[in-house]
């Protein structure tokens, strides 16, 4: 079970990571994040993140020409987004490594817990 607070902090990085694989639209991003095991990401959380990334120049957008129905907004990673992803991913991985080290029970604790 994931904590929504964890996802909130790392969602921009995850979005950039999905976009590294190629251009995506909003709903497609939610499905890819879900397929990656991150659970359902609501549009109410995703689009403000995308708007922030767009404002920062980390992603570029284009609108599709619709044959019917609403136009579709596609996002793609920019060189600045690539840099942001690389820097952010290293910091995140370092952080999770330290967190994991702290959270992982030591061998003695495991032995004590064994009946």
């Amino acid at each position: 079970m994931r904590d929504p607070q964890w996802l909130r902090g790392v969602l921009p990085l995850l979005v950039l990571a999905v976009l590294r694989e190629g251009e995506c639209y909003g709903y497609d991003l939610t499905r890819k994040l879900e397929a990656a095991g991150l659970g359902t990401v609501k549009g109410g959380s995703l689009y403000p993140v995308l708007a922030r990334l767009e404002a920062d120049g980390a992603v570029a957008i284009r609108w599709s020409e619709p044959t019917s129905g609403p136009a579709r907004k596609y996002y793609r990673l920019t060189p600045a987004g690539h840099e942001q992803l690389q820097a952010g991913a290293s910091r995140w991985l370092a952080f999770t490594e330290h967190a994991a080290a702290l959270l992982t029970p030591s061998t003695s604790e495991l032995n004590d817990a064994t009946p």
């Binding site: 909003g26 709903y27 609501k42 549009g43 689009y47 609108w63 129905g69 609403p70 579709r72 907004k73």
Partner: peptide, 20 residues
Amino acid sequence: LEEARDHLAAADQPPEEVFG
């Protein structure tokens, strides 16, 4: 609004549920 319309058309869920 256009992006919200596109998402709702694809997701087939009530807007309050998708966006809050």
